[in-house]
Amino acid sequence: MTDDGAPGSPQVVASDAETIARVVAGDTEAFSILVDRYGNRAARYATRMLGDRAEAEEAVQDTFVRAYRALSRCADRERFGHWLFSILINRCRTAGARSGRRARTFVRDETALVAAAAPDAFDGVAWREEIAHALARLEMSQREAFLLKHVEQLSYEEMAAITGAGISALKMRVKRATDQLRMLLHEAYSA
């Protein structure tokens, strides 16, 4: 569970466990390796989940700082990414419950606009706004499960380990989220 690295000459990359060992031993700056490695992915999840870029960045910052403070308690250092995500998920749950901002669960960015491949006859921006509303209308637990499954592409076993929910419950949440989104997308297309 890492961000894709930039192309370049081959180089030895320190594993998560090695990096954490350096940080725990007092090399504070080594923590930036983990921020670089997981920051973008965490930002994407938080942004999709909270629907607000600033709030998402705040959640990610808080998540990394919490992770740093608890780093010595990270049981499986090779799976730091999963551990970090479990902190992030909890942080997003708290932020989501607190803010109550359900109408802005999607953030526009130009890269996504290009990749969206919206139908020719449909205005891309309007379509995306419909999608934003659709995602926002999901229950938080369903949105969380949907994003972990289809955006972060985790297995149900990984999702269960991270969220603490059972696999059956997670499958149900993903199915319900998918069904509801399909219905909402259909409505958007039909409009």
Binding site: V35, G39, N40, A42, A43, R44, T47, R48, R53, A56, E57, V60, Q61, F106, V107, D109, T111, A112, A115, A116, A117, A118, P119, R128, I131, L135, L147, H150, V151, T178, L181, R182, L185, H186, A188, Y189
Partner: peptide, 19 residues
């Protein structure tokens, strides 16, 4: 549409340098 929707969600989001 669902594939397009997911592709949209998968678009990268960079953590800002400030963050």
């Amino acid at each position: 549409p669902m594939d397009a929707f997911i592709a949209d969600l998968q678009a990268p989001v960079d953590l800002s340098a400030l963050a």
